[in-house]
Write a protein that binds this DNA or RNA. Structure first.
Lengths: 198, 198
DNA sequence: GTCTATATAACGATAGAC
DNA sequence: GTCTATCGTTATATAGAC
């Protein structure tokens, strides 16, 4: 299906150049399809980008919802939450640059549907945290700080490892992401939770 | 001085729209200066952007260097390192969106001078970490993970608080940044270091 | 559903008057 | 040092043939 073909390649193109840097001219040439064909399948550039965002966020919330319904304790649920996040980036590494740019735009390009998905994700993380045996000094922190820790650290580390400004370790994506995922999980649990609590 | 006037406003414009989204036409109208005047003071758009990056990174490395030469123990030095980072964003909040987009670009727009500054910063952080009484399980982590934690979490949290997609707390910049700075500091020291070590 | 051809606007950048 | 005027290019988007 042509529409799917366009979408798949648009994910890479937006990840590489960003929304403003994305050119329909160059993109159509690169994927060897006429520009008008793209406009037949997608209303405009903005619509194509929104579909890309939707495609990248698919099934993420489902996994977390399944996790919430499980019998695990809160420590395991937080581990699972981070693992699901890492897995989503393994599946679609384009989430990293696209997500970082969205963060940089202070959510100006986020529509209502997306805002609601974000709110739901934040509520689920909030629930997990509420079940943790938090040390007293960490009780003032909520889901926002933890979310910023997880997504900020994982994306930044992945981008650093892919960056030309740092010595490239040339490790595979999966290895890099598992590594930083473990760091975030260990760091969070060791810092925030009472020893061997729960 | 006109050149400084242009630069000051360019910082805001690039922070708002990104490099590709920055229009010399609109920018010149906004600051009520002729477009040709801008091109008299700056060779081209790329040069203006590089000067913006340079302006935003001024004096940051100096503070860290001063910190390194002090008599503090490594815990205090790490606290100081994070505080200096937070202060640099307080002084120039535009670092957040611009920095996030640079990270998203995997360092493709970073020239050699900048790459060397980054490398030096990383070495200094490495030295601080080497002096910490790390728990055995954290000895495998280096400056890259810690750097990603600090800069990723602070920037992401600040952007989230400024974002329309989240409930805005309407706190002032300084308050937001001190808050997340404390979180990062506490979290890092509590997780990584042996209790009351050193 | 995919193409050719084109409309219209904005882009970055510069020549030259003052 | 700042302006007017304009160049050449590229951008997003569409009308209409097939």
């Amino acid at each position: 299906m042509t529409k799917h073909y366009i979408l798949q390649h648009a994910v890479d193109e937006f990840a590489h150049f960003g929304y403003e840097g994305f050119s329909t001219n160059k993109f159509s040439q690169k994927i060897e399809l006429n520009k008008a064909t793209i406009y037949y399948h997608f209303k405009d550039k903005k619509n194509l980008y929104q579909e890309v965002l939707l495609y990248l966020s698919e099934n993420n919330t489902d996994g977390v919802t399944r996790l919430m319904g499980s019998e695990m304790n809160s420590r395991r649920k937080l581990e699972g939450y981070i693992r699901l996040y890492v897995q989503s980036i393994k599946k679609h590494p384009q989430i990293v640059p696209i997500g970082l740019r969205e963060t940089a735009n202070y959510g100006s390009g986020i529509d209502d549907i997306f805002a609601r998905e974000i709110a739901r994700d934040m509520e689920q993380l909030e629930t997990i945290i509420a079940g943790l045996p938090l040390k007293a000094k960490y009780k003032k922190y909520k889901a926002h700080e933890i979310k910023a820790f997880i997504s900020g650290t994982v994306k930044t580390y992945y981008a650093m490892q892919r960056s030309s400004a740092f010595q490239k370790s040339q490790r595979a994506d999966g290895e890099i992401l598992d590594h930083i995922g473990s760091f975030v999980t260990d760091c969070l649990l060791d810092a925030l939770c009472e020893d061997k609590g729960e």
